[in-house]
Nucleic acid binder design. Structure first.
Lengths: 190, 190
DNA sequence: TATTGTAACTAACAATCGTTAGTTTTGTGT
DNA sequence: ACACAAAACTAACGATTGTTAGTTACAATA
């Protein structure tokens, strides 16, 4: 499928953002990477802020939709967690650069978009938290502090994009299997 | 203990960097937070870059020294991993803002400092990797891909600073116990 | 061939950036 | 009261920022 010029700009900008961060990339940097002048970018986009918000909100919606799908299924807490791990891996593979922007540059979103991003993130975490608490209640999960469990898993899943590229040789399914094993069973042999 | 004016600047700047990132904080922002003019900062520091490098390299040395101490002790791989978790928690508690800079803004270090930071980080990871491989060899650790184990643990430890503040009520020792349990035994009840 | 829309261009804007030079204020010890 | 050092100030610099206005090149369509 052929990209529109606008999409091309967003793809190229996202790669620069991932390397240097949103604030360190100028419109002239983006233009140079496209082989055009900075002012020409404005034939296709409204401004720098639009690039960032498009990138981040697209990924945020992927997470929200994915989580909603998981929640609405009738599964055990552990099965739901496995689905969530799968969701993160899929998004990491398909939206690596957007994920970097979401993790590192969300605070540079303008007021309105920042608010709706934070809302989506909070809702996402709250759904995840509920699943964990449910698992602790029915004794399928260990009785550790739910907040520590939540952040341990989420930290790993959220920074997967930093590692996935280096591990290109590692198959997506093998990665999923190992990650599920490590998070559920731990790394100690017993 | 009383801080020098230089140290005050670095403390205040680090808090701003943690919120907005290095590039989004101007010397005028830092000065305003200090209640002085931007040019007055130069009576105490060489420039913006010095603030960043001081912050990051200080924390990086903490990690290096801590890891060297762990490696030189005669402990089982699992005991070494516990020590490393402890190390990260300690650094998180004492250098929260520097840790944020290290994680998010290391790429804005100038050539020489960036190189030495990367060297320290690579050495750190290599030491950690060796411990994990040793654990897999002697069967005290599960036979998952060592790289996946490494990144799972390190992701959690490295982003702890993002969560620790919210969980102020959680005692440092309880946190350590839960994190060790989760990483070693997993979260599934068995 | 003439028209039209797309996408590039040049030139410039006001604002802000890190930093420097030179000067004045403030506080301390004699 | 005086000297001296520390630390603030004002003013400005050249560079870079995101963005706008107005214009030109080019390709497809009528």
């Amino acid at each position: 499928m052929k990209l529109t010029r606008k999409q091309e700009i967003i793809v190229i900008a996202s790669k620069l953002f991932k390397e240097k961060g949103f604030q360190a990339v100028s419109m002239r940097d983006i233009a140079k990477a496209m082989g055009i002048k900075a002012s020409s970018l404005y034939n296709h986009i409204q401004g720098k802020q639009e690039i960032l918000s498009t990138l981040i909100l697209e990924v945020a919606h992927e997470f929200t939709n994915g989580m909603n799908a998981v929640v609405s299924e009738t599964l055990t807490p552990i099965q739901k967690i496995e689905k969530i791990i799968e969701l993160h891996i899929d998004i990491t593979v398909n939206y690596s650069e957007g994920l970097a922007a979401l993790n590192n540059d969300w605070m540079h979103l303008e007021e309105e978009n920042r608010k709706s991003y934070i809302k989506m993130r909070d809702d996402y975490e709250e759904n995840f938290r509920s699943i964990i608490k449910e698992g602790i209640r029915d004794k399928s999960l260990t009785n550790n502090h739910p907040e520590v469990i939540l952040f341990s898993i989420l930290s790993t899943l959220r920074t997967l994009y930093l590692w996935y590229q280096k591990r290109g040789k590692l198959d997506e399914n093998v990665l999923k299997k190992d990650m599920v094993a490590i998070m559920l069973q731990g790394i100690a042999n017993h």
